[in-house]
Nucleic acid binder design. Structure first.
Lengths: 126, 126
DNA sequence: CCCGCTGTTATAGACTTTGTATAACAGAGG
DNA sequence: CCTCTGTTATACAAAGTCTATAACAGCGGG
């Protein structure tokens, strides 16, 4: 999977990495058990420091998306804690939904948007 | 409207302020034309610095939620630029939806979640 | 057995962001 | 005139981000 960094983004580099890998898992470009590039290799190819990649992997581990094996490296291993996740998701959604509603987006607009994003994931997956 | 700050949150104080005010607009606790507390007053009641409140108001202005009148203060004035907003919303949704799907939440789970949040807003509004 | 790979840790420096603190300014209004 | 409004400037401390070098332990292949 191609991982790209936008150095002009105001989003932290390690968060860009984290998010792209989560997107990769959602679109089945990464599967359970897949091994991510080593921190040094990914740092090299992307053009950033090793520690920045390491921080991304550490966050991914804390968030339950990978398990880190000292010899193999970072392995995709999604922790399925639905209840806890549902709370987190809903909390994050509240603000962004609020701002959408303020702009005049309707509830059905949001549903359509959800479907469009999910469709894009399903398509990429195939 | 009651505005509260969580000093233990890892979210920046000015962003907490910003988000709560957006939530307030979405739930009609703030209406078009309403005047927000002055930067000094809000800073006093919340227990933070004036400049932190000012930054929140500045961000709200940049994001098109308030207009600032030098004599009256910050006034709720939502900028209805749907097209631009739709892009921003969708971009923000992509990552959080991806992480939800990774955890095993289904598309209909997400739809239900959207409805639940919107229902809560409608209810608060009434 | 050593070499090379893995993540991990430590230390240090530069830079940005965040939040606070004081102070002063112009504009508007009672 | 006094007081309220946002705005601006300056300074400072603390935290976060990113880089750079270096070293360590564990494991596996030649």
């Amino acid at each position: 999977m191609m991982i790209e960094i936008d150095f002009n983004s105001d989003e932290a580099l390690y968060m860009q990495l984290r998010n792209q890998i989560i997107l990769g898992i959602a679109t089945s470009q990464f599967h359970e058990g897949d091994v991510l590039p080593s921190v040094r290799a990914l740092a090299e190819t992307v053009g950033i420091n090793m520690h920045t990649v390491n921080k991304a992997y550490t966050v991914l581990r804390q968030d339950g998306f990978v398990k880190v094996d000292r010899r193999k490296g970072a392995v995709i291993a999604v922790d399925m804690d639905r209840a806890r996740e549902e709370d987190r998701i809903e909390k994050e959604l509240r603000v962004i939904l609020a701002s959408a509603l303020c702009r005049g987006l309707s509830r059905s607009d949001l549903h359509r948007m959800i479907d469009r994003i999910c469709d894009a994931y399903d398509k990429e997956e195939a």
